[in-house]
Design a protein around this nucleic acid. Structure first.
Length: 304
DNA sequence: AAAACATGCTCAT
DNA sequence: TGAGCCTGTTTTA
């Protein structure tokens, strides 16, 4: 997404108005690089400023124009983040819809070719417009302009991200240390972005089930090898998720099951979102509890 | 129509 | 620990 905006001067605005000052600071500058670390996007501009965006629970990018992987010059609208644009959710001159890649990870709606630039839909905090690509940001939990130093400080507070570390194995040792020295529940530590970056509620539940580990186990009671295995599993699941544009955490599915899971969210996970339903391994009802105000899913029999 | 809910985080107490 | 933020979909009344 961001790569479609790198290298050309951008018109930056805040249709909603809440980011007017930040937009003015970036307007006319050229984005030179964009990197995601954990759940955050850092886009650097030729002025040295960095746009930091965190989508949070509700944030999303709406993309219009010649956006990869569309690449066919279509004037199209797609979205990244949650909630997704669902086919048919937005009707316009050309109601034809199609899906890209897998499932509903990326939904595309054709838009009126004559309406360019497209009118903002909803509360658009910031619009980045390269002339051929428009990116609209809605509902982010964070959207701010930082100096390079300020951005570095934010990054330094994050634990390792398998996608950005130089050495995955060495980074794993950092995570081992940060988990095994704490008395806090491992389920809570995995969601702590300063311990390891990027794990959310779905991956927390699924990683711990795959490791057959009770989320309530204090960090210091978890064997180092188990933490290391979870880190390696996280690196793999994240790479899969990026490749597929979808969180699918079951490796027990055959081709048909996989195809079904793309269509049906309830088939994608071992325990996440399956409270009360039978564990896929042992049949015991999946427990739903609260951990630090977030829902925690686990199998009381498989995870010890 | 209203309420509940959601892949998240920050701040105050 | 709880409130607040922010947007959209799904479920309930």
């Amino acid at each position: 997404m961001a790569l479609d905006l790198v290298g050309r001067p951008l018109a930056v605005s805040s249709p909603q108005g809440r980011f007017a000052a930040g937009a003015a600071r970036l307007d006319g500058r050229t984005m030179t690089s964009a990197t995601a670390v954990g759940k955050q996007l850092f886009a650097t501009f030729d002025s040295g400023d960095v746009l930091r965006v965190h989508l949070g629970l509700y944030g999303a990018w709406d993309l219009y124009g010649d956006v990869s992987p569309l690449g066919d010059g279509a004037r199209a609208r797609s979205s990244l983040g949650a909630p997704r644009v669902r086919p048919g959710a937005v009707m316009d001159a050309q109601p034809s819809t199609r899906r890209l890649r897998m499932g509903e990870a990326e939904s595309v709606l054709m838009v009126d070719q004559d309406a360019w630039p497209p009118p903002p839909i909803g509360q658009v905090r910031v619009r980045l417009d390269s002339g051929t690509v428009v990116a609209d940001l809605r509902g982010p939990t964070a959207c701010e302009v930082l100096t390079a130093d300020e951005a570095a400080l934010v990054r330094d507070r994050l634990g390792p991200d398998p996608q950005t570390v130089d050495d995955v194995d060495a980074a794993g040792q950092v995570v081992v240390d940060r988990v095994t020295r704490r008395n806090v529940a491992v389920g809570q530590l995995l969601m702590d972005q300063s311990v390891v970056a990027g794990i959310g509620n779905i991956y927390r539940a699924e990683l711990l089930f795959r490791a057959r580990l009770d989320p309530w186990t204090p960090g210091r009671r978890v064997p180092a090898d188990v933490v290391r295995a979870i880190w390696q599993d996280w690196a793999r699941l994240l790479a899969d998720g990026i490749r597929d544009g979808l969180i699918l955490t079951r490796e027990d599915l055959d081709a048909a099951g996989r195809a079904a899971a793309l269509h049906d969210p309830t088939l994608r996970h071992w325990v996440y979102g399956r409270g009360g339903l039978p564990c896929r391994v042992c049949g015991t009802p999946v427990l739903v509890e609260e951990m630090a105000t977030r829902k925690l899913y686990r199998c009381p029999r498989c995870q010890t």
